[in-house]
Amino acid sequence: MPLDTRRSEPWLERLTAHEARQRLEHERSSRLTQLQAIDEADESTSQPLLSAQKDTVHRVLKEIEAAFTRIQDGTFGICRGCATAIPVERLEILPYTRYCVPCQRDAT
């Protein structure tokens, strides 16, 4: 959903810039904790598995940083595929997403 700093239409829920930043900060913090846990993992854990996990976490961290940039430039919550608003429910679950569900299916 597009960002809105006011809540003038209660039936039309929007994610404010502040709420989006909070969700992204939480996601970033969670991913950094994951990285720390991977780094502290036991030597008995498969190294290829750890490497793949680290790669995935680093990819998500890059997506989170890109979402912060989209907040700044005003494109956060707009689907990169079809240019429509991404539903707030999707942004609550995956705040760094760039696509609505139909476009995400097409992108993968």
Rank of each mutant, 00 (worst) to 15 (best):
M1L: 08
M1S: 12
P2Q: 14
P2K: 14
D4T: 08
T5C: 10
R6L: 13
R7M: 05
P10D: 08
E13A: 05
T16G: 08
A17Y: 13
A17V: 10
E19H: 07
R21H: 12
Q22D: 12
R23D: 08
R23T: 06
E25I: 04
E25K: 07
H26R: 10
R28G: 01
S29T: 04
S30D: 08
S30T: 06
S30F: 06
R31N: 08
R31A: 07
L32Y: 04
L32G: 00
T33H: 10
Q34W: 02
Q34L: 00
L35A: 00
Q36F: 04
D39Y: 08
D39G: 11
E40Y: 06
E40G: 11
A41R: 03
D42K: 10
T45V: 13
S51D: 15
K54D: 03
D55T: 04
T56A: 13
R59Y: 04
R59T: 00
L61E: 02
E63H: 00
E65L: 07
E65S: 05
E65D: 10
A66P: 00
A67F: 04
A67P: 05
F68S: 00
T69M: 04
I71R: 00
I71H: 01
Q72M: 01
D73M: 03
D73Q: 06
G74R: 05
G74T: 06
F76Y: 14
G77S: 13
G77F: 13
R80C: 09
G81V: 09
G81H: 12
T84N: 12
A85W: 15
A85Y: 13
I86F: 09
P87F: 13
V88Y: 13
R90E: 14
L91C: 14
I93Q: 12
I93W: 05
P95L: 05
Y96K: 09
Y96H: 15
R98W: 07
R98T: 10
Y99C: 08
Y99I: 09
V101P: 14
P102W: 11
P102I: 12
D106C: 09
D106R: 15
A107G: 07
T108P: 08
